[in-house]
Design a protein around this nucleic acid. Structure first.
Lengths: 211, 211
DNA sequence: AGATTGACAAATAATCCATATTTGTATAAC
DNA sequence: GTTATACAAATATGGATTATTTGTCAATCT
């Protein structure tokens, strides 16, 4: 379970049959290449200046393939945002795994790592640096993002600390929202911010994993 | 101490002399009227469709008075955002005062009240409802807002619960950022959200006011 | 003194037109 | 299943014109 993108199931395959592994892998490769192309384009120009043709060309794929995969420009943008979030969560999961014995250390490491990654991410940089076309996707239109990221982070937590139980959902949503807030508007050094978040949520976590 | 707006001190009054009470009150009334006018205009049209002349007229004041008070359209918009935040914090302070004996109840009440107020606020409604001109002021450009609101909320907390000490700053910033997040993208019913926040931060607060 | 008025240049938006580009879809070819 | 080509519709671009708005005056009014 690793994608937030709610990849629309190929419509014309009978519900019971399993998908061919090859088809799925190819699809995933295609999407990933396209996202990578978009990421690359965003380092140079603002999203409003990047055309679908640009993305397709940078991915070495025809424009029609791009449209076939994502219905429209907006859908692609939305999916791209979700993909970036997915990448962040994977990063975060890695940090969690490095501190399975100490939830608070895990939180500090994960949040800090996220902030560092976000600061380098072309999408985040674009949003911060005066091309606010995608800002709504992170905020006022961010239901899908927040809900999806919360869900996946929540699972990541309960997998590692089963004692967390249902409250992992609460924690996850709070962390996701704070993460977005600090990504869009960084405060101090990433380590300091991460430490603050841990200070605030540490007591809750302790109470959670303890009794 | 009640304004976040960093109202530029009248340049030509000697630093030592106290300001005339009348002048200050008049200024405050003027600003408040102008903000009220802007608030009213935002109920009908998007900010990009509201002209400075509209605001001045709605306030019953000349356009030049508006420009004299705030240097430019952008400065006015920014000041207006800060003013709204100020109002929210005043609301919140009221809620805190009603629960001086129980910090957690105070947090729940305050956060819930804020969410209700935000949901009705013309500025927030405008930002949510597809006129994102001001969205950056709440997010990527929100340093002044977050810092100012954090400062004032922090003071409000330490005034009421001196035991909080320096850590009130941490708590305040976290609450401000969560408040902005939930204002821009509401989740469930306001009461439920407020309860969740209290669940998460309650243990920290207890540990804070306890020993 | 401080606010309003009227006037003003400069910047910005609106309008219209013509032309290009881009989006999104369909079809045939590889 | 992807690409190439073609295409209509929507959207962007540019140039020329006009209107509006912004931001700043000095004069006037209270």
């Amino acid at each position: 379970m690793s994608t937030l993108e709610r990849t629309t199931a190929p419509a014309n395959r009978p519900a019971g049959k399993p998908a061919k592994p090859y088809a799925l892998a190819a699809r995933e490769l295609r999407r990933e290449t396209l996202f990578g192309a978009a990421r690359g384009e965003l380092e140079h120009r603002a999203w409003s200046e990047v055309t679908m043709a640009d993305v397709a060309a940078a991915a070495g794929v025809s424009r029609q393939t791009l449209y076939k995969e994502f219905g429209s420009r907006d859908e692609f943008a939305q999916a791209f945002v979700l993909r970036e979030a997915d990448g962040f969560i994977s990063t975060v999961e890695g940090a969690l795994d490095a501190h399975l014995d100490d939830p608070q250390a895990a939180l500090t490491a994960a949040f800090g790592l996220f902030l560092s990654a976000a600061a380098e991410d072309p999408l985040i940089r674009a949003v911060i640096g005066g091309s606010p076309e995608m800002l709504p996707f992170l905020t006022t239109q961010g239901q899908t993002l927040v809900h999806g990221a919360t869900e996946r982070l929540s699972i990541a937590i309960t997998e590692r600390w089963p004692a967390a139980g249902n409250d992992a959902q609460l924690l996850a949503e709070c962390l996701v929202r704070l993460a977005i807030s600090y990504a869009a508007l960084p405060a101090g050094p990433t380590g300091m911010t991460a430490a603050s978040v841990t200070t605030l949520l540490g007591p809750y976590i302790e109470q959670l994993t303890g009794p």
